[in-house]
C-alpha cells in the first residue's frame, strides 16, 4: 500500500462543553495535504465550534489539535498557534470583516500585519485577490455597503491574501444564490488542484459536497457519525446520517414539514 500523505490537520478527542452542556463529545478529524474535507451536519451541531478549536480561538475542554504535526496550545497564542495562523486562512460564518474600513483595506490588513511590503506591492496583491473573487469593482466600499454574498467573497479574499496552506471555510455558500455558490465551489477546487491547498469546508450543501469534497464527515450529537468519500457516506445506514442525506430526495415542502414535526 502506498504511503498516504501525513495529515496537515488533526484533531484528537475534542470535547467542548458550554455551560456544562457537551457540544462536542470527542471529535477526531484528519485532513491530509491537498484534500478538501467537508464538515457537515444540522445547524447547532457544533461545526463552527470545531473550526474555532482548529484555529485556536477556543480552547477545547479535552483533546488536542495538531497542525503539521505540532500541537496547538492555548488561545493566548504561542509559537505553534502563531505558525498555524500564519499558514491558515479562516473565513468566518458571518464574514467578520472590519466595518470601519474599506474592502481593499480589509483584504490588505493580514498582509500589513504579517509582512513589511511596500504599499504598491500590497495594493497589487489586494487587487489580485479581489479579482479572484470578482470584487475588484467594489474595493472602495465599506462592508456595510455590500450584500451578504459579496461580504462572504470578500472574507474569502482576505483569507487567501497570505497564500495559506490550510483554508477553513465556515458555511461559504449558505444563503447565496446558485451562481455565486458555484463560483465558490470552483474556487475551492481550483485552490486544491493548482496550489495544493488543504481545505476544510463547513457546509449544509450536499450538491457542492458531491462536486468538491474528497472526504466528508457528518456530525451529529457532538460526534462524527460517519466519515469517508461521498460514495462511502452514501452507503451509511445510520438513521441520523440518512435523515441528513435524504433531505435532498424529498420534495422541499415535505422535507420542511418532516423537519418541523420531528421523527
Amino acid at each position: 500500500m502506498i504511503d498516504r500523505p501525513a495529515p496537515v490537520l488533526e484533531t484528537r478527542g475534542l470535547v467542548v462543553r458550554f455551560n456544562g452542556r457537551p457540544v462536542l463529545r470527542g471529535i477526531d478529524l484528519q485532513a491530509r495535504a491537498g484534500e478538501v474535507l467537508f464538515l457537515m451536519g444540522p445547524s447547532g451541531c457544533g461545526k463552527t465550534t470545531v473550526i474555532k478549536c482548529i484555529a485556536a480561538l477556543l480552547q477545547p475542554d479535552e483533546g488536542q489539535v495538531l497542525f503539521e504535526g505540532r500541537r496547538l496550545e492555548g488561545v493566548g497564542g504561542g509559537p505553534a498557534v502563531d505558525a498555524m495562523r500564519r499558514a491558515t486562512g479562516l473565513v468566518f460564518q458571518g464574514s467578520a470583516l472590519l466595518n470601519s474600513i474599506s474592502l481593499a483595506e480589509n483584504v490588505a490588513l493580514p498582509l500589513r500585519a504579517r509582512l513589511r511590503l511596500p504599499p504598491a506591492a500590497v495594493r497589487e496583491v489586494v487587487r489580485m485577490k479581489l479579482a479572484q473573487v470578482g470584487l475588484l469593482h467594489a474595493m472602495d466600499l465599506r462592508p456595510s455597503e455590500l450584500s451578504g454574498g459579496m461580504r462572504k467573497r470578500a472574507g474569502i479574499a482576505r483569507a487567501l491574501v497570505l497564500d495559506p496552506r490550510l483554508l477553513l471555510l465556515d458555511e461559504p455558500t449558505s444563503g447565496l444564490d446558485p451562481v455565486t455558490s458555484d463560483g465558490i465551489d470552483r474556487l475551492v477546487a481550483q485552490l486544491r488542484h493548482e496550489l495544493g491547498v488543504t481545505v476544510v469546508v463547513v457546509s449544509h450543501d450536499l450538491a457542492s459536497a458531491e462536486r468538491v469534497a474528497d472526504r466528508l464527515v457528518i456530525l451529529g450529537q457532538g460526534e462524527a457519525l460517519v466519515e469517508g468519500t461521498w460514495a462511502e457516506v452514501q452507503a451509511s445506514r445510520d438513521p441520523a446520517v440518512r435523515s441528513f442525506l435524504d433531505r435532498r430526495a424529498r420534495p422541499p415542502a415535505a422535507a420542511a414539514h418532516a423537519a418541523w414535526e420531528g421523527p
Binding site: A55, R85, T88, L97, L98, A113
Partner: peptide, 20 residues
C-alpha cells in the same frame, strides 16, 4: 465599537492576523 467587534467576531478575525 469594540463591543460590536466582539459580537461580529472581528476581534477573532484580528487574532488570526496576529493583531492582538
Amino acid at each position: 465599537e469594540l463591543g460590536s467587534m466582539v459580537v461580529s467576531e472581528e476581534v477573532e478575525a484580528l487574532e488570526m492576523m496576529a493583531l492582538r
